[in-house]
Nucleic acid binder design. Structure first.
Length: 310
DNA sequence: AACTTTTACAACCGCATCATT
DNA sequence: AAATGATGCGGTTGTAAAAGT
């Protein structure tokens, strides 16, 4: 379909907005409300195109915008939502009141993405980066990863490419199991302590349950979120895969707090159900966030230039 | 102190989608 | 049904500030 430019660019100003322009736009919208962006700049006495006005308003001037740095809880939510929604910034922003899609997108690209990369997590798939990890392992001349995990991950990658339906079935089945496990866990925790530390993750009974399988399989599935507005409390930890510090496979009995991928996948660790989420969520500074990253069981050596893999 | 590089984020651009005629 | 307009979205760019040399 033919589509004309949103405005005649001749004579219209571009670039950063001045306080005077902001004032004009704000005053006009306070009186007439937002909308009619094509005619708004002329009526408001602005030498801008409507699109520019709309963006300035929605991304900066809107009174309900929550400015300032992102809290750790917000960051967690963003990571979790991104693992499911992908780069659907507006959908993510819709679940973070006061934050704009542009702001989230920028924050992702400048902070979160880099942090995930440093932690050996692929920011697109949210899965461990096998290329980096393999190389890191080789450089360090020691096995950082459970070889069975690497083998499993490779298998999953192949499965994803060749027959994604299998992973979907596994994923659906696993979510059911996961929910029941979480409910059971909450019940037992509550019974033992009287106060459940898991409660925030499961407050709505629809707690998230992400793992390697989920993210290898369907990072963009939106089904679970369509009718599920998130609160800080309803989001669990990111799906960092914890790898055994030594090459031997830890017996499941030693790590009962780790779920196993059922069926043929054996004892690969996944999202811890009752680990340190409470502890983590109390942290907020950059250094502290970095220390959270250090909780990961594998690390990328300094000698490895992550940028080469970006 | 001067210059260069990096970082952070506001703003722009082009395309997609929905609404209206 | 097709054409057009309005708005929204996501990728990308530009630039000021901060950090490094």
């Amino acid at each position: 379909m033919g589509r004309t430019p949103c405005c005649d660019k001749n004579g219209l100003k571009k670039g950063p907005w001045t306080p005077e322009e902001d004032l004009k736009l704000t005053n006009y919208i306070q009186i007439h409300g937002p909308g009619n962006w094509r005619t708004l700049p002329r009526n408001a006495g602005l030498q801008r195109c409507g699109k520019s006005c709309r963006l300035r308003w929605t991304n900066y001037l809107r009174p309900d915008i929550r400015r300032g740095r992102f809290s750790f809880e917000e960051e967690e939510i963003i990571i979790q939502l991104h693992s499911i929604l992908g780069n659907k910034w507006s959908a993510i922003a819709a679940r973070l009141p006061g934050r704009t899609d542009n702001e989230i997108k920028n924050y992702w690209n400048t902070h979160i993405r880099k942090r995930l990369l440093r932690s050996g997590i692929d920011p697109v798939t949210h899965a461990p980066r096998l290329d980096v990890l393999d190389l890191a392992s080789a450089l360090c001349n020691r096995s950082l990863l459970n070889p069975q995990l690497l083998s499993l991950a490779n298998t999953l990658l192949l499965l994803k490419q060749e027959n994604p339906e299998i992973l979907l079935q596994q994923h659906l089945h696993r979510n059911q199991l996961c929910n029941s496990q979480q409910n059971a866990s909450m019940a037992s925790t509550s019974a033992a302590s009287g106060v459940s530390q898991m409660e925030p993750m499961q407050a709505n009974g629809q707690g998230f349950c992400y793992d390697v399988l989920t993210n290898f399989g369907y990072p963009n599935s939106q089904d679970n979120l369509a009718s599920c507005p998130l609160t800080n409390a309803s989001v669990s930890q990111p799906n960092y895969v914890q790898c055994a510090p030594n090459p031997t496979v830890s017996p499941a009995s030693e790590n009962s707090n780790f779920q196993t991928i059922e069926g043929s996948f054996g004892s690969v660790r996944s999202t811890p159900l009752n680990s340190s989420s409470t502890f983590i969520n109390t942290r907020s500074t950059d250094d502290e966030r970095e220390s959270f990253s250090s909780l990961l069981k594998f690390e990328i050596p300094e000698s490895l230039n992550i940028d080469d893999f970006m």
